[in-house]
Design a protein around this nucleic acid. Structure first.
Lengths: 158, 158
DNA sequence: GTGCGAATACTCGGATACCGCGTGTCCGAGTAAGTGAGG
DNA sequence: CCTCACTTACTCGGACACGCGGTATCCGAGTATTCGCAC
């Protein structure tokens, strides 16, 4: 799993804390976690393409959440950064080797190995989809209620 | 996820089908799925280190299952190939930026983002641990009962 | 014929290259704000 | 004072390098088999 996912979630959380109509530029978002601005910008563009962020070009431009935090799941973020391809991809090697004496009926159903791996991955995706950005914010606010105000004051547009 | 996992599971499945005390050399295991012999050998060594396979050196050497198929889970295989490190690793970027006015108490509990990602990953690992090689073999045999005999005849030692 | 030793063939195990993708950076297109002059 | 065109500064967006880990390969250490020879 790429580290861009961690950056994306924390950045989205910061935007949820700022909670302003005014967009926040990538430079300031990068500063909020001491990340490379240009590279973070690249990740943010992926979030824009996925419809999680809105980008406003030009001076006083920047990024803001495209939806409510409650409507953004971790699954959305991971898919936006990592892509929609499944982690385990079956290449159907079961068909190779074993000679030519294997009846075609053996391959009528999906590969048993692939099925098992997909089951596990489905559990992972469901767990990700069950957690929204709002949930994470709620848990963070519970133990660190000061963060929202700090983020809004330091990195909000003012 | 690396493709070595797919190779490993299918190879273990082949060994479960052969079901012989005589070891099967890596060359023949590679031929059973038309894989690069030398590279498969590398993956098999990882399985040996993890205690899933036994290796016998020398002529008439090879690999055989170190445990019953019912005692080998997909979690074991994935851990053996991919390593024990979690897919999502928290780098604690929440502590950086935000200036110096953040009380230390905000970081007393684990990062909320990390906690959510770990929850999802735990669901994935549990789903993997719930499936054994024997389960996969049973499902494969259900739809392709000929495979076990073919594997034993073509790739078994004899 | 039988036992023994050397030669042989075979297989695992680790050390060694190659390459694609994630990581990181830079510069141009485009927009809003600021500025100054003219009416 | 108000309007408007121009200049300026700022920000997104995509194009361009770098490095590391997965991919792939080869060769040496070690063992069982096999062959030949002496008895």
């Amino acid at each position: 799993m790429t580290e861009g996912v961690e950056w994306a979630v924390h950045t989205l959380l910061t935007l949820a804390w700022v909670d302003d109509d005014e967009p926040v530029p990538a430079t300031r978002l990068a500063a909020s976690h001491e990340l490379p601005p240009a590279y973070l910008n690249k990740q943010l563009q992926a979030l824009v393409k996925a419809g999680l962020l809105e980008s406003l070009p030009g001076a006083r431009g920047g990024f803001r959440l495209a939806r409510r935090a409650a409507d953004i799941t971790l699954m959305d973020v991971v898919t936006a950064i990592e892509g929609p391809a499944p982690a385990f991809r079956c290449t159907e090697i079961r068909r190779k080797g074993m000679g030519a004496g294997v009846p075609e009926s053996c391959f009528s159903t999906t590969c048993a190995v692939n099925a098992s791996m997909q089951r596990a991955e489905l559990a992972w995706r469901q767990a990700l989809a069950a957690q929204t950005l709002e949930d994470i914010r709620a848990e963070a606010d519970r133990h660190a209620p000061a963060m929202a105000g700090i983020a809004r004051r330091v990195y909000g547009r003012e």
